[in-house]
Design a protein around this nucleic acid. Structure first.
Length: 842
RNA sequence: GCGAAAGUGGCGGAACUGGCAGACGCGCCGGAUUUAGGAUCCGGUGGCCGGACGGCUGUGGGGGUUCGAAUCCCCCCUUUCGCACCA
């Protein structure tokens, strides 16, 4: 394709304007409290090597919003950066003998070039990369603050171990028992680990969700489920015999406690070992426990295994009934939830019911339904978990179950045998990773002093240069003596550094605050500056982070708030979860070989075409199927605009604003222009990008028709010679300018070029969003359909502003209508808001 | 199993608080231009009947509310997503 003067040549235009934007620092901003701000954020990128069109889509959504807000007079911060720590870099290093830093920085350079060629309006001077000491230093700083406040702590626990990634995973990072990153089955391992006490904020995170009115309900539901709050009570049963010990159970149905005919311990329960020792056959006992513990962790968590258990031979006293009940160990009781022990109430819990039937344990009904026939224990085919009133429950008999819950919780507290508690499914966030390419945890282990924080003035604890990556087990940092061996900051004795690194989700939990003040070297960010820019007004990214990044960030926001660094409770006011880009029905991935490279698309069609396509093809939240023909359609549209506006730009740029002497077509055109301004404006505020584009296409179609008629359009021969009425020129000028401005968030290069050709030397940076004139946008004549018995039989063309009575009369006078009501009686006429007349005949 | 969202032409998708279903685009058909192809410009395009005016039918299926339902209510089917022994 050889471009001629009238051809749309995106490559030339795009290079020109990208240079211009860089020279004028068009998108750089600084805090200015006298102006309204807008923080537009897209999830930063993992520098995997190449951006594909799926990433590009998200950046496009953010860019359209940012550019629109800028034209609307906001001070817009639209930053970008790199989530630059993580395993792929380390794995690449193992394979290619490259340092992870080299691999990462090279990838960043390449991807940055891609994004710049797309013309995304980032404030590049705020760019951050989490793998640089100047960034991760502040991870360490925040970690130490959390350590001081007991929000970061170390304990031994059973953790999720990914055998392929050779590291620990947080609970959020295990999906269906598999590693979120590589899909391997996750094992259990007992390790000393660092945790963040996110559970301290469980209630706040839950309650805060109610205020997130501009988040997708789906994400909030996922977060609420993940937090999993349940109200109940802890009640203490007493193990009889030697050793005598309390067994605390958690229940949400203390009202059923008189039906508690056995106690179940998780195989991991602390008492199990003691009981085994004092049993007749300690080895056999332990063997059975070992078997349960070894059962597939995934299957145990998802309930896919057969419920099994065995009698410990010991008994415990039910504190309410006073009865001695057997104590069993059961494989379906989770050691990590509640107290690791439950009371078995077979009549009212399905799991306990199945267990009791299997092992012939007693079933006792203590809640009878208020209606219907009473339950009988030996006839039960399933548990009755529902409502009713209590029976066989001592002094509580006869009470409605909900009242009984309250009364019995109170009674337990009075008698010091229990108390009401709230239990969460959410667990503390395990952040230790046994890998190299992450933030070193700034702690020193001293024989004498224990866990000693690295003094703030010694930060950052820098990653040493490791050159030999094996990817085997234990933390690579442990193999670097110069790193490990240090002295205790407190007592000066020889000590060892912590060798685990932090989960990379720590990096991403606060990066959006760092953008506000990215070069600060005394604090993570200046609270005053952050107060101006944050919270983030619009945040766009993938739904896969619904309960990972998005819950961690909400937690960090509160921690930083309590440290006095931020002034709000929620970091992201509005969230959009964008749909994925599919090719051949599948997510794009290198292994499937279905990746569409934006560079290829830009080489053929230009960045603007790619940008337009990805915003037009479907609503941002929906997934899209990539089609080359769709992309070509977008290219055609831009060519169509070019052929329309470019040749006429010089001829209309001096035209006066439209005045009174317009003909019908010109008046209609003006109206279309102003209606389009209204539609695009409101669609963009709602981020309905696809319908905004379609409104612009309608405008262009109408402009073609007008120019065709005026003999000046692309279809006209010898268009240069055609006379242009001054009125036409003024209408065209107004329409072209609106079109270019409304289009500019989508296709900024083309818009800048045409804006310049329309006589504006100072660029779109100096322009502002067009305002619709409601009077011009208003229809002067309208078409009112007339329904007879629900079917449209005629259309009236009337002057706007007719009264309902006039419309009714006009409708009934219409010959078409007359024909349909002839010989029948008009029973009723409804006029709907001047838009429709509905006639009912019999 | 539980919960949520969705189901509209050949395809992607429009339709604000119930008010002309199918905007816009892709594809397809026809015309103009062209030596030809491509590109471009114009027109047509849910289905059935009719030469046209027009008529009938139509938003997963079935019922209901209403002058009027893609939209609201009930039942069912399908798809996608989330949760799934959390006591």
């Amino acid at each position: 394709m050889t471009p001629t003067v009238s051809d749309y040549a995106p490559q030339t235009i795009e290079k020109k304007w990208q240079q211009r934007w860089a020279e004028t620092r068009a998108f750089e901003v600084s805090a200015d409290p006298s102006k309204p701000k807008f923080y537009c954020l897209v999830m930063f990128a993992y520098p995997s090597g190449h951006a594909h069109v799926g990433h590009v889509r998200n950046y496009m959504i953010g860019d359209v919003v940012a550019r629109m807000k800028r034209l609307r007079g906001f001070h817009v911060i639209h930053p970008f950066g790199w989530d630059a720590f993580g395993l792929p870099a380390e794995n690449a290093a193992i394979q290619n003998k490259l340092h992870p830093r080299t691999w990462t920085l090279d990838n960043i350079a390449h991807m940055k070039g891609q994004l710049q060629r797309l013309g995304i309006s980032y404030a590049w001077e705020r760019e951050i990369a989490t793998c640089l000491p100047e960034y991760y230093r502040w991870n360490q700083w925040i970690f130490l603050k959390m350590f001081e406040r007991d929000l970061a702590y170390r304990r031994r626990s059973t953790v999720n171990w990914c055998p392929s990634c050779q590291t620990v995973l947080a609970n959020e990072q295990v999906i269906d028992g598999k590693c979120w990153r590589c899909g391997s089955d996750v094992d259990a391992r007992a390790l000393e680990q660092w945790f963040f006490r996110i559970t301290a904020y469980a209630d706040q995170l839950l309650e805060g969700a109610d205020g997130l009115t501009e988040w997708p309900e789906k994400v909030l539901t996922m977060q609420r489920n993940w937090i999993g709050r349940s109200e109940g009570a802890r009640v203490t049963f007493t193990l009889v015999g030697e050793p005598a010990a309390p067994i605390e159970v958690f229940t949400t149905r203390i009202d059923t406690i008189y039906g508690g005919t056995f106690v179940l311990l998780a195989p991991e329960h602390a008492l199990v070992d003691d009981i085994a020792s004092s049993s007749g056959d300690p080895e056999g006992f332990r063997e059975r426990v070992r078997r349960f513990r070894a059962q597939d962790r995934t299957a145990r968590l998802t309930g896919e295994i057969e419920k099994e258990g065995f009698d410990t031979g010991r008994r415990a006293i039910n504190p309410f009934s006073g009865e001695e009940v057997p104590v069993w160990v059961a494989n379906f009781v989770l050691g990590e939830y509640g107290t690791g022990a439950v009371m078995g109430v077979p009549a009212h819990d399905q799991r306990d019911f199945e267990f009791a039937r299997k092992y012939d344990l007693p079933i006792r009904i203590v809640v009878q339904p208020d209606e219907g026939p009473p339950l009988a224990a030996d006839e039960q085919v399933e548990a009755h978990p529902g409502a009713g009133h209590l029976v066989a429950s001592g002094e509580f008999s006869g009470m409605p179950w909900a009242d009984a819950c309250a009364a019995m919780t109170q009674a337990a507290a009075d008698r010091k045998i229990g108390e009401g508690t709230v239990q969460y499914r959410l667990k503390d966030w395990g952040i230790s990773r046994q890998r190299y390419w992450g933030t070193p945890i700034p702690i020193v282990h001293c024989e004498a002093c224990g866990l000693v924080p690295v003094p703030y003035e010694d930060l950052p604890v820098e990653l040493p240069d490791v050159t030999d990556f094996t990817g085997r087990g234990d933390s690579p940092l442990g193999q670097v003596p110069e790193f490990v061996n240090t002295i205790c900051p407190t007592c000066g004795a020889a000590a060892r550094r912590e060798t685990d690194t932090m989960d990379t989700f720590v990096d991403s939990s606060w990066y959006f605050y760092r953008y506000c003040d990215p070069r600060n070297d005394t604090l993570p960010f200046d609270p005053e500056v952050a107060r101006y820019w944050t919270p983030v007004d619009f945040y766009s990214g993938g739904v896969e982070h619904a309960i990972l990044h998005l819950i961690y960030s909400r937690f960090f926001c509160r921690v930083l708030r309590d440290l006095g660094l931020v002034a709000h409770d929620e970091p992201f006011t509005r969230l959009l979860t964008q749909g994925m880009v599919l090719k051949d029905g599948a997510v794009m991935s290198k292994s499937k070989g279905n990746v569409v490279d934006p560079d290829d698309m830009m080489a053929t069609y230009g960045a603007d075409t790619l940008r337009l396509y990805e915003t037009f093809v479907a609503p941002p939240e929906k997934e899209i199927e990539w089609t080359d023909t769709g992309l070509e359609g977008s290219f055609r549209f831009l060519g169509r605009i070019w052929r329309l506006v470019a040749p006429l730009a010089g001829r209309v740029q001096a035209a006066a604003p439209p005045a009174g002497e317009l003909d019908d077509a010109e008046r209609a055109m003006r109206r279309k222009t102003h209606v389009t301004i209204q539609r695009v404006s409101s669609d963009l505020e709602r981020v309905h990008l696809n319908t905004a584009v379609s409104a612009l296409m309608e405008l262009v179609n109408d402009l073609y028709a007008l120019c065709d008629r005026a003999g000046c359009g692309p279809a006209s021969r010898a268009s240069e010679a055609a006379e242009l009425r001054p009125a036409t020129a003024s209408v065209l000028r107004e329409a072209f300018e609106a079109l270019v401005l409304l289009l500019s968030p989508f296709t900024p290069h083309l818009a800048e070029e045409l804006w310049e050709r329309l006589g504006h030397g100072d660029g779109l940076a100096a322009a502002s969003w067009p305002e619709a004139d409601p009077d011009v946008a208003k229809a002067h004549t309208l078409v009112v359909p007339v329904q007879i018995n629900g079917k449209v039989r005629a259309r009236l063309t009337v002057e706007a502003g007719q009264s309902d009575a006039d419309l009714e009369a006009a409708a009934l006078a219409e010959p078409q209508v007359q024909a349909h009501i002839a010989g029948k009686t008009v029973a009723k006429v409804v006029v709907a808001r001047g838009r429709l007349v509905s006639v009912v005949v019999k």
